[in-house]
Design a protein around this nucleic acid. Structure first.
Lengths: 260, 260
DNA sequence: CAGTGGTCTAGACCACTCG
DNA sequence: GAGTGGTCTAGACCACTGA
């Protein structure tokens, strides 16, 4: 098809005319600078879906980089799901429909956004002895001190979720005011805790009378439940939470990327 | 602490005594061979949690590989969450508590396992015109032919989920028998469709009377709902599904890895 | 066949962490 | 200061794809 040829030429033009400004004096790695600029070019449509990127050797030559550096940049976007490599063909921009869903919900949004919601009211912030369940989840001895955190999250003046969190008491201090302003994960990060991974279980059940009162739902209404244990990069469990969401006002969105 | 020193020495010994067999004649990449053997060493406890791996230059020298190749192997395990790198310190095996949860539920288990469950009964397998909702989800014109698939999944003789899927009719042929034996995703893979990503939304609601009958739950029982659109690596939507699970017998488990 | 990404090498310098 | 991972270079050969 002639159309295909036209598109291919347009692609090359699109990438050739792309201005990539690399600052070798910057502390930001070159591959990262390139990746960021490619990503924004894709976002802004300068690189359209389906466009071929041009071969890696040429790109490297044109930018004055080595091929491994260019590959590292491209690879990071492949890992994000924005680009697709094909042996013998080239590297292509993923189609917009897929990209849009990627942008809508990164896998880590929930972790990142946890606690950053506009309105979170702290109902409880105190130290207790770890129950067997909590101790097991956090991998600490039963009876050890833990911070118990209970929060009510709402948007637009309507309650959305009831969050209960448990943290080893030695980990950090949780000032209630800062907690409502900043969010739990941001405070943990500020305390030097670097998150590594978290394990989540999502289920559903009907609201009890108490839960109904708290969340403004009738008894028996459907609720989404989520249990999470989050780990440090040293392998410590740093948080265990059991959360309850009003199903009518909340869903979990996430994106799966299939590794080749 | 003396204990720390002992552990550190044990680490070095653990890795030094690790036998890594590389086959340069194999079509399997060297970095992949190394990654696999490291992974199994971690699984089998030959490399214990917290163990330092030893520096990359030494490993490369000992195995007769270049450092980038060793780095590529290590990086792949870091991406899986099994190892943690620390600048100026070394590479460590992640603690077992974290690893266990990683092994329990890879992020892609659900996709991979979809349809491989022991008992799946096909209730419907026919071609229809795409409704507006389905057409929008699949990114095809309204009214275009789509395969409509309705399945009932059960384990241990009890129903667990009611799955409804829509696929562009041009994509592949779905033989009901093979579908029950093989599973949808395996059939798609066999048809040359390589999955790239999927977007999921998980929610909850109460069962209608019909759903209750189908799933053997009372009306009003809590149900987990899941909507998914899966994409090809060319960017085509290849499947849209709306699934309903009995909350009493099913939860979604997944693992988040925080990218540095 | 020519062109592409996939793999691999053998070096180099830097930033960071620790003692 | 010594040791670590993080980045980068300038090449090389291979496997796969398409025409």
């Amino acid at each position: 098809m002639a159309e295909t040829e036209t598109v291919r030429q347009a692609n090359a033009a699109a990438f050739d005319s792309l201005e990539v400004a690399l600052d070798r004096g910057s502390p930001i790695p070159l591959y990262y600078q390139l990746a960021q600029q490619l990503e924004s070019a894709i976002e802004h449509g300068a690189l359209a879906p389906g466009n071929l990127l041009g071969n890696e050797v040429d790109i490297a030559a044109r930018l004055g980089l080595s091929r491994p550096t260019v590959r590292q940049a491209i690879q990071s976007l492949v890992d994000k799901g924005l680009l697709v490599r094909r042996r013998g063909i080239g590297t292509q921009v993923v189609h917009s429909q897929v990209r849009r869903s990627l942008e809508l919900s990164s896998l880590y949004d929930d972790l990142a956004a946890a606690g950053q919601s506009p309105a979170t009211r702290v109902l409880r912030n105190e130290i207790q002895s770890a129950s067997p369940e909590v101790a097991a989840a956090l991998g600490i001895p039963e009876g050890r001190d833990v911070i118990v955190l209970e929060r009510l999250r709402s948007t637009h003046g309507e309650s959305v979720a009831h969050l209960t969190n448990y943290l080893p008491a030695t980990l950090l201090d949780l000032d209630t005011e800062r907690l409502e302003a900043t969010g739990l994960y941001r405070m943990m990060r500020a305390a030097g805790i670097t998150l590594h991974s978290a394990r989540q279980t999502v289920g559903a059940r009907c609201a009890t009378a108490d839960e109904g009162t708290l969340l403004d739902e009738p008894e028996g209404a459907a609720l989404l439940t989520m249990c999470r244990t989050a780990y440090d990069d040293t392998g410590r469990a740093v948080e265990y939470g059991t959360h309850v969401y009003r199903a009518a006002r909340y869903t979990f969105d996430f994106q799966l990327l299939v590794r080749p």
